[in-house]
Nucleic acid binder design. Structure first.
Lengths: 336, 336
DNA sequence: CTGAAAGCGCTAACAC
DNA sequence: GTGTTAGCGCTTTCAG
């Protein structure tokens, strides 16, 4: 920058004024501006964001912490956030927390230190009190997506899990199902909410959740398979199963099929998330789709907005978006 | 930092020496160190990486450009890179290129400007000459993963596509298949290599690639489905199909199954990548698995190593890792 | 309208 | 061993 100042015979501060578009505040002669611009272009000048940040300017970076980047759902989510961020001129610093406590903590330190303008937390970290605690003491705005701990003081934008499960249950009930099982993942956050929604709903059908109708397993295809097998073994076998995520549902589907149980002929299956693969299974999965793009956009808008009214972290407002049931081939009437 | 200098009555430079662990070069009294450390801890001191970077220190950031983050394969890849980077104390700045030219270019600008210590490019950007060109003029080391353009001057670490396809073909031939079709994605990079490997191999079986045996489609499940349908419609229908990616294979599988073609009874199917879902289809997919973790580790090691011997970009060395065939349920003997 | 100068937080010679 | 001093590249008062 000083180079170009010398080359054009202007002072470095003038160059700064021109190149940083502070022009509006302090007028600069058009002629000078032209010359400087030209010189800058010639040298291929690129402002150094480090230096800018050092002076207190925003870094235009959004930190993103994701619980498990290999989860196909979060792949889509990151894409959506990245897109939304990009629209505001922001870039993404990604940290995958690998669901291990120590790293997550370290991670927030990194993100904070990197002076992200805001931090976005994707997914439930309910089992990592550390992280959540740390996040509270971070100086930049933190906003959570797909994080459903009611206790959290962090502003959150999420999908309406209750509505999602309700629509799935309604669909199943309309089809004639009464004995409906549930496959749960981790017992906190989104999945816990979905489980509660299920439990509440099923109690309107039967006096209480039948023994074994809720299977808690790790949120993996294998977990889903294990759960399905257990459900299938029940004395009063359910005629339909709601899985709290598509990943679980896909595992459950495979388990049923490989054990000679036809879907949806013998048992109906509904997932949650609508990951791309959900449409590719045979039969294709009936599932609950969330408005990922909208959620991401809202979160980014919020993160960016928060930067202006600094420190305003009191409200911990929560935006909730409505999901939509996508009926495909994995649901049908109960076996007679 | 000056605060803690004042508080402990030492000079700020001493504090810096202690806190930046330059201790080794210039000895510091143990007592002073203790005091400073304590004070630093009390204030909750966190070094400002911006300032550090401004002084020329490495930013400990690795830029990652990925062609399509929603591709489940790249999800795993990013995780692996992230893990490997973490081991060297590096973090990841993620940029998804959305496979759109303009953005990709802009992206590299951002990454360069962000002063990443190196840039990792995941996947083929063969259709984006812009990006590749830009990358060449970037000052930091660039290293490519899963990028197979022979013309590229960028150091590359990749999987041995030829060996992968060969093992798939060998497996099929051992089973007795002679009429083997191929589903190709984009006509460049990894996929082109795989296609060439297929073409070479099939010519050892028949005089030339039979008409229509290579189906070129977009790298999506739908694309795979379309390709499979075309293959099935062929006069001399293949008894086996090799798909250049699992995503294609999964789509192809669904297309076959929903059209009453049994896999592997009527037609065998092999994928490539071994994405997590590959084990969850019914039948589970026989596929070619790459050593993702090793590839990521090699790339990161390289990226980090390159930083020391600056400017050494001449060789454009290429590391190639051997993939491994994973036999599951989608392959069997040809129908009699 | 433009220049001079003071830092942002930190590191690295170079003294003492 | 520790303090002094000079910047890294940029923004920003404050004077011309």
């Amino acid at each position: 920058m000083s180079d170009i100042a010398k080359a054009t015979g202007v002072s470095q501060s003038t160059v700064s004024r021109i190149l940083s578009d502070a022009t509006l505040a302090v007028p600069v002669a058009a002629s000078t501006r032209e010359r400087v611009r030209a010189a800058a272009a010639e040298v291929g000048f690129r402002p150094n964001p480090m230096a800018r940040a050092l002076r207190g300017a925003p870094t235009m970076l959004l930190g993103v912490v994701v619980r498990d980047i290999t989860d196909p759902f979060f792949g889509e989510a990151i894409e959506a956030v990245s897109l939304a961020a990009h629209e505001h001129g922001y870039n993404i610093v990604l940290g995958s927390a690998h669901a291990r406590g120590s790293e997550a903590v370290e991670l927030t330190a990194v993100l904070e230190a990197r002076h992200c303008d805001a931090i976005l937390v994707l997914g439930d970290f309910g089992d990592q009190a550390q992280l959540l605690g740390d996040l509270e003491s971070v100086r930049v705005p933190v906003i959570a997506l797909w994080q459903a701990e009611a206790t959290s003081p962090i502003p959150t934008v999420n999908v309406d899990n209750l509505a999602g499960i309700d629509s799935a249950m309604q669909h199943l009930e309309d089809l004639g199902h009464r004995r409906i099982g549930f496959i749960a993942g981790r017992p906190f956050g989104d999945i816990r909410q979905r489980q509660e929604a299920y439990a509440r709903r099923i109690r309107t059908l039967v006096s209480d959740v039948p023994r074994g109708y809720i299977q808690s397993v790790p949120n993996t295809p294998d977990g889903g398979g294990t759960a399905m097998l257990a459900l299938l073994d029940l004395e009063e076998r359910p005629t339909a199963v709601v899985a709290s995520t598509d990943v679980l549902a896909i595992g459950a589907l495979r388990a049923a099929l490989t054990n000679g149980v036809l879907v949806p002929h013998d048992i109906s299956l509904v997932g949650f998330d609508d990951i791309p693969m959900a449409a590719c299974t045979v039969p294709a999965l009936t599932t609950v789709r969330m408005p990922i793009a909208e959620i991401a956009a809202a979160a980014v808008r919020y993160a960016v907005g928060l930067e202006q009214r600094t420190g305003d972290r009191s409200g911990a407002p929560v935006s909730v978006f409505a999901p939509k049931l996508v009926v495909r081939e994995s649901t049908g009437e109960p076996p007679s």
